[in-house]
Design a protein around this nucleic acid. Structure first.
Length: 273
DNA sequence: CCTGGTGCCTGGGTGC
DNA sequence: TGCACCCAGGCACCAG
């Protein structure tokens, strides 16, 4: 489940391979329900940057006559990018980009939750509404603690749903929502998060994401980096996937429930409403 | 506007 | 062993 740390790790490996290269050919499998739009419009584009917003990868392309476009990639739940994977293509390859140096970037996505789309720069509203309304980058100065607290206070949703919405803060998924709420000592179902607790959540969310980036993300099954390596964060998670094991703070067995239609693990003793 | 619920998709796990 | 079923979850979409 690639979230911000996983997508950032992929971005860092992708950037040196792509910047300065031209897209020589592009392919998408054309599955009727796949969210693949205008992939062929990447052909001929010079890659000038590989950026990330939340869980989205944004590849800036410049064409002849100064035309610019963006290739927007979302890895969904099981998506992974590989460059020149050994043994060639895979039954789960959904799209690929051939570069002018002969290398091939392959988008593998068994469950087809990912997306690949070419749009005019910044024109997200039609095809990618979540990106159009994405909240601030959590590791940037745009992520302001007071504003975060005010937005949590204004919402009537469970705090975990707020974190997953992408609107209040970008890039948080199920793993790091659970981790941050555990570290902040906040019950994921709470609809009443006051200012001081919101500021603590703001701080620990940034810590959790930074630590995960340092370890190049969490690999459970499908997530891997461009070079095929796994992230190293899984062994350091405090709650995600650890229901029934003792809480690292108070030794109470962690409990699994459902919040915002997502499996949720928390400590019933030290995470408070 | 906001909120909550459903569907998409497929590999892996479970229970009979 | 075989098979039906269910679950994982990021996001789009819809109803109220």
């Amino acid at each position: 489940m690639p979230e911000l740390p996983e997508v950032e790790s992929v971005r860092r490996q992708l950037e040196p391979a792509l910047v300065g290269r031209t897209i020589a050919a592009a392919w998408a499998d054309g599955h009727p329900r796949a969210r693949q739009f205008g992939v062929d419009r990447a052909v001929g584009g010079l890659v000038t940057a590989v950026r990330r917003r939340g869980k989205y990868l944004l590849i800036d392309l410049t064409f002849d006559a100064g035309v610019r476009r963006e290739l927007v990639l979302h890895l969904g739940m099981t998506g992974a990018l590989r460059i020149d994977p050994p043994a060639g293509s895979d039954a789960h390859d959904r799209a690929s980009l051939t570069l002018d140096d002969g290398r091939v970037v392959r988008f593998r996505d068994p469950r087809r939750f990912g997306r690949i789309t070419v749009v005019d720069p910044g024109e997200y509203a039609r095809r990618i509404p979540t990106l159009a309304r994405l909240g601030p980058e959590p590791l940037s100065d745009d992520f302001d603690a007071a504003r975060f607290a005010a937005q949590l206070a204004a919402s009537r949703s469970p705090v975990k749903a707020c974190l997953l919405s992408q609107r209040i803060v970008a890039g948080v998924g199920n793993i790091y929502a659970d981790e941050a709420l555990w570290r902040a000592g906040i019950d994921p179902r709470s609809r009443r998060v006051g200012r001081s607790r919101a500021e603590r959540l703001h701080r620990v969310l940034r810590d959790v994401l930074r630590e995960a980036i340092e370890r190049e993300g969490t690999t459970f099954r499908d997530y891997q980096m461009v070079n095929g390596a796994s992230g190293r964060q899984a062994a350091f998670l405090d709650v995600y996937g650890r229901a029934g094991t003792p809480c690292a703070r108070c030794a109470t067995p962690l409990v699994r429930t459902v919040v915002a239609q997502r499996g949720t693990t928390y400590c019933p003793h030290c995470q408070r409403w």
